[in-house]
Nucleic acid binder design. Structure first.
Lengths: 343, 343
DNA sequence: TTGTACGCGTTATCAA
DNA sequence: TTGATAACGCGTACAA
């Protein structure tokens, strides 16, 4: 029977529910070793397992954390989750994962669901441009960490864990452009209202501006394969232009790199000879692909771990009836700059 | 206040809790349109949201499903989850995701946690070799679907959703070997006690046996890069042997393919000239990599969707006090065989 | 060291 | 068309 209750255990064992409750919660302090083993035996025999829901009602905490990611099929999201889970599971929290599919509406619905579940905290890779969409969370003083994407009007006392997107792109862009590239072509594929890619693109654009060089941004949508070929051909030039080409091509998203490589192959453009290639990468695979790519690596797992441990602090504060947002901390994680030659 | 209760709403609105409860659950049947709007107003004003835990206690169902995957950082797992979520979320279920890290111990702990949460159903990519590890689930008649990996002694009335691993490998292996390859070298990287890779390897091995050709299996662990180089050199031969080589090299796992390609490049072995290359792939990226690879594609998202919809049927049965396992169905999804030339 | 009794927020039953 | 009230399983203050 999966239906045994604490009362059943108490009766079977011949003790009171209080004693059983104490046992379950590890308050062995005042309990004879004998009753202890007797209770354990009964529990095993009846396959008893305490109902989390009943426990929640009394304790006023669920030990559940809600996580909303933009697209779980993107490696970034799964590595982020992994980092979160690494921290939260050992801390005793269960994690409810939701996939917003980069839709603000869906995200709103999911926040409601999570609030109904009385989650003790929330980690969100946000979709919406305005913080207004998240005020229902802060109104109820729920511990909250925003991850990866930046919201303009987010109050500074709300935690935010991001990568060093702008600076890393600006500095790599500056260096490469001053080493002799004429212009930079930035490829993005923005799925959400807000995206880290936008900030990265800005980094390169600003670097170009500072050096008075040209910056072009190409937003790759769901076009067919030829579309990108044509655009690249326009911007970088066909084979006749190759020789004098000093273009720096930047792919700001993992999956985009593969598409780019395919196009380059079709166009018979080689790097680093015909152009310079930079890719922003979430994880190690791209280094298997080919030599000669400059990589900007972020570490989504670390991002998740930092977000989760900050959330834990907030939840502790909340459990002690304090303002969780006092325990908030914002964090910018470094992006690793891997030289093309070292791969 | 996030603390408003149904009683508060009732008092504020000047109706009884029963009425509010009816409203919340959409039983408008016998309710004046006016009280309806009045209740809605109060709910909005007080930011009321019903506690899932209190509701669970009465209803005896949680509307939560537990999912345990082997390694969430593996693309297979995240696509699987996506499929599951696609089905479960619209059906009104929330999903608790756990990562077993391919550890049987961790998996056991997670099953316990999920049972405490009183999940209405469980989808597991199992780690353990014996079904004994999951009997605590079937003992309590909990809806259950096993995914991806096969357990020898799993009772046939327990649902299982897998890919057509053996047959697809056997048939591709048979075809290619009879078209002129001398032997097959299979690369695996098994992380768990059980793995679909083992079955795939068997498929190729049996194909070789039937044609009286050699089959070699290399288990790639966490060795350094050179290790694989050496092993491949042993089996496939160095450049002097290339010319006459008729080896079929098989990578049975996505990430392994990249490692393999790197090794082949270092060894200056080209395909399809020097050898034939086959890869089992979870998703479309490998087709960007290079031409000339035979691909066996499975569809983890579809796997997840099927698993989830079967689970739903079981949960409906359980809700109607019937044996959920009568609604169980096992399913084998096809593996797509993509010819090397078509990529 | 152990037991009794009440309350947590919701829904279902019965009554009006 | 609406209310009053008894459960659900657990934790804890208080009593013994």
């Amino acid at each position: 029977m999966g239906k045994a209750t604490i009362t059943d255990i108490a009766h079977e064992t011949g003790v009171s529910v209080t004693t059983v409750s104490r046992f379950i919660n590890g308050n062995y302090g005042k309990m004879s070793a004998e009753t202890r083993t007797r209770i354990q035996t009964t529990i095993d025999r009846l396959h008893y397992s305490p109902r989390a829901s009943a426990r929640q009602m009394r304790r006023r905490q669920s030990m559940i954390v809600g996580v909303i990611v933009g697209d779980i099929s993107n490696v970034f999201s799964s590595l982020l989750f992994k980092g979160i889970y690494n921290v939260l599971q050992p801390a005793g929290y269960d994690v409810m994962l939701m996939n917003s599919n980069n839709s603000v509406d869906q995200e709103r619905d999911e926040i409601t669901r999570l609030q109904s579940q009385q989650v003790d905290g929330l980690i969100i890779q946000p979709d919406a441009r305005d913080f207004r969409n998240y005020e229902t969370i802060t109104d109820s003083q729920l511990p909250l960490v925003m991850v990866d994407r930046e919201i303009d009007d987010q109050p500074h006392h709300i935690s935010k864990v991001t990568s060093d997107n702008f600076d890393s792109c600006f500095s790599l862009g500056s260096r490469l452009l001053s080493e002799g590239y004429d212009k930079v072509v930035v490829l993005t594929r923005v799925m959400s209202q807000i995206s880290a890619q936008t900030i990265r693109a800005d980094g390169f654009t600003r670097a170009a501006q500072a050096l008075k060089k040209r910056a072009i941004r190409i937003e790759v949508g769901d076009h067919d394969a030829n579309w990108l070929d044509d655009r690249l051909c326009d911007e970088i030039g066909g084979s006749e232009q190759k020789a004098g080409s000093r273009t720096l091509l930047v792919s700001l998203m993992g999956p985009l790199l593969f598409q780019t490589l395919t196009s380059l192959k079709r166009l018979k453009l080689n790097f680093p000879d015909d152009l310079g290639l930079v890719s922003f990468d979430d994880w190690e695979w791209s280094r298997y692909v080919q030599k000669g790519i400059y990589l900007l690596e972020q570490d989504p797992t670390a991002l998740g771990e930092q977000a989760a441990s900050n959330l834990c602090r907030q939840m502790e504060a909340a459990a002690g009836n304090q303002d969780p947002y006092q325990a908030s901390r914002s964090l910018v994680l470094p992006v690793r700059d891997v030289p093309a030659s070292s791969i």
